[in-house]
Amino acid sequence: MTNHPLKVIVAVKRVIDYNVKVRVKADRSDVDLSNTKMSMNPFCEIAVEEAVRLKEAGLVGEIVVVSIGPKSCQEQIRSALALGADRGLQVECDTPVSPLDVANILHKIQQEENADIFLLGKQSIDADNNQTGQMLAALLDFPQATCASRVKIEHNKAIVTREVDGGLLTVEMSLPAVITTDLRLNEPRFAALPKIMQAKRKPLAVKTLADLAIELTTDIELISVDSPTQRQAGVILSSVDELMSTLRNDPNVQMPKHDKEA
């Protein structure tokens, strides 16, 4: 394999800022996002940061950042450009998209871009699906490494350490491949002001779903959204002794039997 500079596509999603408290609409139709601060999905930020670090290490030649949504998602594309991505692509779409829609769109984009690596967040903090990267990998018939906490690229291979139940699992994949990021992969930098200014001059193309010949999926319908049932605060106990005897007397608590408390 020749050592051509790798091309990375990073997909980023505009979501409610992770510090904002979520409110459910009174008619239970959805979460209320009016007048809410929106930001780049934190896992997507980690994906951008990882791509930029790979580029800084000389392993990646070009970073293309893609976002799907209304014009406002260009803000998140510009943020990614300010962090170090080279050019942006907005896929114009005013309705919510499903994970399979995003995977279908990225699949189409890949037909033109021929990227070597897709770096995506493992999930978005709004829908919490954790599906898109795996779906894209399936459609492209690429290997996948989800929930990455370490990424190493060498000899046209990606060696990725994944966070899995019970520990860490390291796999080696041939490129092209899809990688989704977990929290501990890196700590994203803040964009410096000059970079933010430069980012305004970086290319940002816009395509429509029609340009890509994409029809949105309709298999999952959102019926309603509710607030979770709230737990009631219980009692504050005054001492360890009181706490332990209360626990022993709670029928829902099976404490180990011991003679000390008899």
Partner: peptide, 20 residues
């Protein structure tokens, strides 16, 4: 971890979204 990694890959090959 196993199910989250695999289910969407199955779903996409079936041409459907998964419910997570």
């Amino acid at each position: 971890s196993f199910g989250k990694d695999l289910a969407p890959r199955i779903a996409a090959l079936c041409g459907v979204n998964a419910v997570s």
